[in-house]
Design a protein around this nucleic acid. Structure first.
Length: 639
RNA sequence: GCCAGCGUAGCUCAGCAGGUAGAGCAACUGACUUGUAAUCAGUAGGUCGCAGGUUCGACUCCUGUCGCUGGCUCCA
């Protein structure tokens, strides 16, 4: 019998008879691996365990501990859900059911689902799992597959097959009475499916095309263990508790009105935080050589034609008329900054020119996409444009990287970086693109950061770097961005006079760090769960009097704290001290200072820290020094 | 813009085979004068998102509309 040699994950080699399946190999390696195997990988391709080995190859056995193994199980769980739906609601048509982060979804048509049906579907899925149906792969010709799904009037599957070239070999996966067109791979049987939960239902267009049929998408999560599922559900619950919309209301940070959908109103508390964020960043920007400007909100249509926004972004712009001319609210700050650059003759000595703006922009986003601070129609960008020579790109990007790291570090965010390179349809010469991409890469390498490259994902006008921050409960948010732009300098015919006395074209670097200040505030609210570090806290110290007798002393303490530059307020109400303390804690106020007879007589304060508890008695000067020190260091709250 | 769900007091929510609304917290008043996460009692507060329709009668059913939520889509 012929043999072939497989190289395993640990580098060891093993001879097996040709025709040995991966399942058999797994069992031969170890009993445990045989039981835990869910799929295999042959020369880097994920395949079913039933796949026979026919030639020398690098082989890996996948279990649920491998991301790819887990994905296989999620995919099989999607089939299981589809089978349950087919059993419960005959006539339902099936579109696609891919794996997504934490789980999968499946798109259906011809049945109106309601969330009430989730438990029925889950119960049927459990039944299918208990039946432990073998999942079998079948290779079929394109014509046979077409015939099968035409017979079943499965219009989506038929369309998918029709879009494949003639003569393509297709695969079907069968489990009991259920069959689905699928590339696979899958688990060996339905009994191997572990923990899952149906989560939500949503509309989704067939093939993501808004002109086509709207399907019903069922979302579900699936994990290798029940404990992991529970952990995930707990995280979602935690996220709900931290939701900035809930906390924004409770802590009176901001509000929304039907009269201005998607446009946040800042309440006094929220504005304190926002102002602190801006002045923190503003000081750093001065240090990093930025000059702050402010450009108009409403500008003539001519400008938007020149910038190209009128042709490419018109749908999202608010337009108004005055003096029989069209004006538009700025959706971006760049065109205004181009005008500032062009306002006078620029020399190479002026470059790099870094201009920043807290620019309030309006974008008419589709109604259905709005959500809290995360997706709005009016927001403020911490925008900046750096005008430089092509050979300065590298050093400028490095400066931005350093600034971004400094800003994020203060909030305790870690971040990862993605570099998006030249897309197919792009503007600018090969030379410029190559220079720009290598400058970005060199800057990233020089900064010693790791990054992920998204080839072809850049904007048509230049490559970009995106920063994704990770918050306290592990979610990531894309915030900062650095984008090179070869387009705007051309459109606005920007020039500088070089050493050679001739006119040259500068490169523009767009950059934002918070991105949207408003959204960043939302992210921070969730990151800190509303318990902001002292320097950001709207109220830093709440003075609580034990009874009316100490009102004078309490009011005097408040005044002295305010005079020391501390955001303080006093609670003089005729409530019990326990009640006042509870309220201060519920509002997540960092320090509560209790004053009663002892404190008044000794001229001291009794200090309580949010998240820590009673810190004991302090004299006024020590407390002020402590608070000021904590504010200055921007110390993160230790809970 | 599309699909689904939701919209009742300042907040969180209950209610109704269709007979014009209720709780807790907050607010206000009074009593209590309080020592580290909720003192007691009382009062007030709503054209049930808005506009039409069906009905003797609509918060409840229907249509439209606005807003919110979850997705889709779009994202120079």
């Amino acid at each position: 019998m012929a043999e072939c040699t497989v190289v395993l994950k640990d580098g060891s080699e093993r001879s097996v008879e040709k025709g040995t399946t991966l399942a058999e190999l797994a069992a031969a390696i170890s009993g445990r691996l045989g039981r835990e195997a869910v799929a295999g990988k042959v020369d880097g391709v994920v395949v079913d365990l039933s796949t026979p080995l026919v030639q020398d190859a690098a082989v890996e056995i996948l279990t649920l501990n491998d991301a790819e193994g887990l994905a296989v199980m999620r995919h099989s769980t999607a089939h299981c859900m589809a089978q349950a739906v087919a059993r419960l609601y005959p006539g339902t048509k099936f579109a696609i059911g891919p794996v997504i982060e934490n789980g999968f979804y499946y798109d259906f048509a011809d049945h109106d689902f309601t969330p009430d049906e989730f438990s029925d579907i889950e119960r049927e899925m459990q039944a299918i799992i208990k039946e432990d149906l073998p999942i079998r792969r079948e290779e079929v010709s394109r014509d046979d597959a077409l015939r099968l799904f035409e017979e079943r009037k499965d219009r989506f599957k038929v369309e998918i097959i029709q879009d494949l070239p003639e003569g393509t070999q297709l695969t079907l996966y069968r489990q009991g009475e259920f069959v689905d067109l699928c590339r696979g791979p899958h688990l060996p049987s339905t009994g191997r499916i572990k923990a899952f939960r149906l989560m939500s239902l949503a509309g989704a267009y067939w093939r993501g095309d808004s002109k086509r049929e709207m399907l019903t998408r069922l979302y579900a999560v699936a994990f290798a263990k029940k404990s992991e599922l529970d952990e995930h559900l707990k995280m979602l619950e935690e996220a709900k508790q931290r939701d900035h919309r809930k906390l924004g209301k409770e802590l009176e940070l901001f509000m929304f009105s039907e009269d201005a959908p998607g446009m946040p109103f800042y309440l006094p508390n929220g504005l304190v935080i926002r102002n602190e964020l801006e002045s923190f960043e503003r000081a750093l920007q001065v240090e990093y050589g930025y000059q702050e400007v402010r450009t108009p909100t409403l500008m003539n249509q001519r400008l938007w034609v020149e910038s190209g926004h009128w042709d490419h972004y018109r749908e999202n712009m608010y337009v108004s008329e005055a003096d029989e001319e069209l004006y538009a609210l700025k959706p971006m700050n760049c065109p205004g900054h181009m005008l500032i650059y062009r306002n006078k003759l620029r020399s190479y000595r002026d470059l790099p020119l870094r201009i920043s703006e807290y620019g309030h922009v309006h974008r008419h986003e589709l109604r259905g996409t709005l959500g809290g601070m995360m997706r709005v129609r009016a927001f403020t960008q911490d925008d900046a444009h750096i005008f430089c020579r092509p050979d300065q790109i590298g050093q400028e990007v490095e400066r931005v990287l350093a600034l971004v790291a400094k800003v994020y570090g203060v909030f305790g965010f870690t971040h990862h970086i993605e570099l998006s390179t030249r897309p197919d349809d792009s503007l600018g010469s090969d030379e410029l693109w190559n220079q720009a991409e290598s400058a970005l890469q060199a800057a990233l390498d020089g900064a010693g950061v790791t990054y992920h490259i998204n080839p072809g994902d850049g904007a048509f006008y230049g490559p970009k770097i995106d920063f994704h921050i990770k918050d306290a409960i592990g979610r990531t948010w894309q915030c900062a961005t650095v984008q090179l732009d070869f387009n705007l300098p051309i459109r606005f015919d920007l020039e500088y006079i070089g050493e050679d006395g001739k006119a040259h074209r500068p490169v523009v670097i767009h950059r934002a760090i918070f991105g949207s200040v408003d959204r960043f505030l939302g992210i921070l609210t969730e990151h800190f769960a509303g318990a902001f570090p002292l320097w950001l806290a709207p109220v830093q110290v709440r003075v609580a009097t034990v009874s009316h007798d100490f009102a004078d002393y309490g009011a005097a303490v408040e005044q002295k704290l305010k005079a020391a530059g501390i955001r303080a307020e006093v609670d003089l109400r005729g409530e019990k001290i326990g009640y006042k303390i509870r309220e201060a804690q519920v509002h997540k106020i960092p320090y509560t200072v209790v004053v009663g007879e002892k404190e008044r007589d000794a001229g001291t304060l009794s200090v309580r820290r949010y998240g820590t508890g009673d810190l004991g008695t302090m004299n006024f000067a020590d407390f002020v020094a402590k608070v000021k020190e904590e504010v200055a260091s921007k110390e993160l709250l230790k809970v």
